[in-house]
Design a protein around this nucleic acid. Structure first.
Lengths: 144, 144
DNA sequence: ATTATATTTGCAACTTAGTTGCGTAATTAC
DNA sequence: GTAATTACGCAACTAAGTTGCAAATATAAT
């Protein structure tokens, strides 16, 4: 009963079957400290002994993303990254030197959700469903 | 003396030569209402009678981006888009139905730059250099 | 437990974005 | 106008991501 039990139930709830590859992928995602690219996740699967195929990984990620189990992150390098969705609403700090990705949770007052969404609806008649906010800069380690 | 004159000077200032392709690209970028992908920009070039090559377009965009003449936008579809940098700091509204991209300028109070950057430096020791904030939702036209 | 059904998987081939090396062409400086 | 340098076009390449289909396997029904 590790961290991935909850997400496995979510899988079942979405009519998905519980296969070894899926179980392993979820376990990997739940133990990863940083969002992983399909390529990295595939490598991690192989390290675990699964001779998985990239097609499978892409399909799993797509399915789990659609089911809201994982969320997708787009940085500037053209590679998608995935992390468990239940890690709470947060944003990312991307280090321009070492490429490390850290999380940051903004205090409610600074979170751009509510007020800005209202203003955009009023001025632009655009209904915001979600936003992405990423910060690029230099991390603590690289600044020393 | 159209809108692209200024950017052509920026080109010269950066040691760049003024070639027909560059002139045309800048003209296209300055008349585009939405950020354009390399593919779109190449198509626009061809429509103007330049039998340009995609390599050239990629190289131009990279160079102009490096020189700060244009800025790069990364959405969720794995395609980079470019717009003139001197259009002022703004964010994008991306319609999930029609894929149209609109701009929005946030009032100073709602702009996540200053306060959040300070807080991130304090708490995470991370020095923010730039941020990207995009809103995904449904545009006015598609909501009717 | 066994079987039937539907989903998942792996493979190979494909598409699209973007890159690299190099010879040719064009711009700028003289 | 000529030389030096930069930009261009082409072809070949890498890497991300997709698609069709046949074989494998998880689930549900017996």
């Amino acid at each position: 009963m590790d961290d991935s039990t909850g997400t496995i139930n979510k899988l079942r709830a979405n009519g998905g079957r519980v296969t070894p590859v899926r179980r392993a992928l979820l376990q990997i995602l739940s133990s990863n400290k940083q969002p992983g690219s399909p390529r990295q996740l595939l490598a991690q699967l192989k390290k675990k002994g699964f001779d998985a195929n990239k097609t499978t990984v892409y399909r799993q990620l797509e399915m789990m993303h659609g089911a809201g189990i994982i969320s997708e992150i787009n940085l500037s390098d053209g590679v998608k990254r995935y992390e468990l969705a239940d890690s709470g609403h947060h944003h990312h700090l991307i280090c321009l030197r070492c490429a490390r990705i850290d999380d940051v949770v903004l205090p409610a007052g600074l979170e751009p959700r509510v007020e800005i969404a209202k203003m955009i609806k009023r001025v632009k008649k655009f209904a915001v469903e979600r936003h992405s906010l990423e910060f690029f800069g230099v991390c603590a380690r690289c600044r020393e």
